[in-house]
Every structure is written in C-alpha cells, then in structure tokens.
Design a binder for these strands. Structure first.
Lengths: 239, 239
DNA sequence: GGCATTACGCTACGGGTCGTAGCGAAAGCT
DNA sequence: AGCTTTCGCTACGACCCGTAGCGTAATGCC
C-alpha cells in the first residue's frame, strides 16, 4: 500500500466511507494509461473512464496528475526485497537486478522521470516522492550495509556523519547508475552489466589503493551470483 | 551551436533565408520560460511571445515542445571541457563539477528529465538527445580514459568489446550518480561529494581486491584537488 | 529591374483538456 | 428515522494546441 493521502480519517467517522476499490482501480488505470499513452498524453479524464469512476471522484482524492502518478508508480516498488544471498556482492546484484526489472517496465520509465522533473519546481511533490519511493530504496541500502558489516565485508563506520554521507553516496551511485543505464543510455541492465557494476562498486568500497595492504575486511568478499546462500540470520522483512 | 534541424538547406538556395537570430532568440526564450514556468506549464505560444516571433514561425522549425526543449537544453552542455589537471582524479573531479554546475541550473533540471521521460516513448527524440547531449558527455569520458592510459593511471584495454562495455559502465555511473544526486536526492554535488565520489570510482577502476598486490598502475593515482599539478606526462609513453 | 521562391507576422478557427460547480442519489453511522 | 460524506453525472469557462489562410518581407536567379 502507498498510504499517502487518504490517511486523514481520524476525526470524521461519519458519512459514507471512501471506496478502497476505487483507489486501487484508479491507480491501476493510471499505470495502464502510462503504458499506452505515456506521461504527456495521459489525461485525468481518460484515467477516470478506465477506472470506471467519475472525473470528480478522482479530483477529490488527488490534487493533480503529478501526485496521482507518484502514487501509481510507487506501488511498483513495493516488491523490492533484500534476501540474504550470502555475500555482499550477491546481495547487491540481487537488489540491483530487481530495481532494474522495475525500471524496465514502461509505466515506470515514462512515469518516474516525469514526476522527478516536475518535482524540481514543487517541494511538496519532491517530498511525496522521497517518502513513497526513494525512502524504500534507501532502506535497502542501509540494511545491506549493516548486513555486510556484520559479515565483516565492510568496515564499521564510527563517525555517524561520515556514515550518513557514505550511505548517500552509495545510494546515488547505485540508483543513479541503473536509472541512467535504463532510461538515458537505453540499454538493459542485464546480468552482465550488473556484475560489472557490482565489481566496480565493491572495489571502490572495500579495496585499498593499489600497492597498499588491506586493513578492514576479514574475508575476501567472495563474489558470484551462484553462491549458495548460507542460513544466516538475515531478517529481510521490516516491521 | 546545436546544429540539429535546420541543417537542411543544401538544395534550396532560393527564397528568403531563415533568421539565425530568431533561432537563438527562441532557444533563449525557451530556457527563460523553463526557469520561470517549468516544463509542464511551458507553452509554445508563450515562448514565441518571449522570443518576439510568431507562433507559426516556431512550429515551422520545431515539431513540438520536446524537440524544442532538447535543443534549448543541449546548448547548456556546450561549455563542457576536459582540461588537463595533471591526474585522473583531478580530471574526474573537474569535469564532474562542471557537469554538476550545469545540472544545478533550473532550466536544466526541469527540462532535461522531462525530455528523457518523453524519450522513453519516442525513438526519434531519444536519438536526438543522444546526438546533441549524451554524445558530448561520452566523448569526455573517452578522452579522459585515453589520457589516463597515456599517463599509466589506467591499464590499456586490448579487447575492444570489453573496452566499450567498460566505457559505457563508467559513463552510466558518473552521469547517473550526479544526476541522481542533483535531481532525485535534491542535494548539491559540491566539492566534498565529488571528492568522495571520485575516490570511490577511482578505487573501483584501479585498485585490487583487498589483500592482493597491484599489477597495472605504475603510480598511486594521487588524489586530491589541492594537489599541485605535476607537469603531466608521467613515465608512460605518449601516442 | 522583374520574377520565383521561401520565410515571416498576423488572425482565426475547431478540437481537446483542465479544474470546478451544482445537483440528486447512495452508503455509511448513531 | 436523521445526519454526514461520498459518488456519478452534466455543464461550464478558460486555456492551449496545431493548422490554415493571407498579405508582406527578403533573398537568388534571370
């Protein structure tokens, strides 16, 4: 669930309740229209017709096209998981492939970039995107790093400020590279590419400058998608 | 110059020539409108008025909003240069800072992502973006790598296929990270961030997995913007 | 100079979308 | 029952789109 806008029903318990089915139908219709028409040719009247609701109903729940598409696209990212694949490299490859699979869908392609573009002039929209899309991805990066630190694949970060900056950097590199590969370069982020990217990222995070000795990692950060996942405690799902 | 669409004047030498001043005025007006209104509220009628030309004149030169904004934004990237700062690290930091400075401008923010979003459903538009914007950036990456290889900071790539794939990877990582940092995370790609990013990228490209010895680089790829640029041309032979 | 050709400015137009107002009916709660 | 809120529907002014038509301006060719 997105849980973005109709969470305001605490005081008003009386009256006819809003149809939850209508919300789902509208968001599904929005994604359908994104696939068929793209962002620019998508009209709210058309979405309402597809969803089987009146145009006025749609306007009662969403302020406009931007907010609607953000919520519709956000649901695509609900499926993002971080299963424990045994090594940091395998974890990265797994989640990046998931992310790439979502971005490969036409409704994500045409919708996501458009709302990001609009968000450059709309702080509220930017916050909405951050809360419903970006934060979810960020949590995966955070969880993945913590897991790798428990494994000893990444050194612990004592300084919280430096830790946060590194986290931001990793996030921008990972998400940015996949988005750029998929949407700008127009080439698929397939397994081969993801392997190369993971190697680059992992070297950048763990390796020492050429000619120096290692200090932190206690094991060689074994790399490979076929690695059999040991039990590990994991705990991928959040509360 | 962009040199995108009005290059078709070889056969027809007769008649009144198109006003080059009008082109410049239209593109400048487009950027101005992007700053003030953003992508979605930008109308071609308004651009024509700002430029002091008739709306029909604008339609005679550009097929629509997408193509117009691509050309208007493309001119922003004309200033991208790759001065020799002495080391690969300094070169990367310099060009990334330039790229970040362009992306920080509001006309680039709201315009670039919007046309990229539209390009997901329009192959001709995608090609236009590639030719007038992306290629220019790609050339910088290519030139930077070649220079670093001459310096001995990067190992030569014998396999052309592998070489091309690495180049694509670097490009997507660099451009993607900066774009994501600026437009999605909404934080500035300032010098501190660029330093961290460059360190990550450079380690990923040159360093060896922790615990191993160096093989390729002949010098430690000195890093830091404050480094007094050595007279370039390290030990490595030139072209 | 005259002529053909192309670009330009201007006006006007049908078509489409926007976002809202107003109404009666439906669906809950107390 | 009565109250409250939502829903579907219709209609509306406002705006922008993209083009057609026309007269005028600026060039090259003869």
């Amino acid at each position: 669930m997105v849980g973005g806008m109709q969470s305001r029903t605490p005081a008003s318990r009386t009256g006819r309740p809003r149809s939850a089915a209508a919300d789902a139908a509208i968001l599904a219709a929005t994604r359908e229209a994104l696939v068929e028409l793209g962002w620019s040719k998508l009209t709210l009247g058309d979405v309402a017709t597809r969803a089987g609701v009146a145009k006025t109903t749609l306007y009662r729940r969403w302020a406009g096209k931007n907010e609607l598409v953000v919520d519709a696209v956000a649901e695509l990212f609900d499926e993002l998981q971080l299963p424990d694949r045994g090594s940091l490299a395998a974890d990265i490859e797994g989640v990046v492939l998931q992310f790439a699979a979502i971005l490969a869908r036409p409704e994500a392609k045409s919708g996501l970039m458009a709302v990001v573009a609009e968000a450059t002039r709309d702080d509220a929209l930017r916050e909405r995107i951050r809360a419903s899309i970006v934060d979810r991805q960020m949590r995966l990066v955070l969880a993945g790093r913590a897991r790798a630190q428990r494994r000893g694949e990444l050194p612990p970060e004592p300084d919280p400020g430096e830790s946060a900056r590194t986290l931001d950097l990793i996030f921008d590199v990972v998400a940015g590279a996949v988005v750029h590969r998929t949407l700008v370069s127009g080439k698929p982020a397939d397994e081969e590419w993801v392997r190369s990217f993971t190697r680059l990222l992992l070297l950048g995070l763990t390796a020492q400058p050429a000619g120096q000795a290692a200090t932190a990692p206690s094991r060689p950060a074994g790399h490979g998608t076929t690695a059999p996942s040991p039990p590990a405690e994991a705990g991928g799902g959040r509360a």
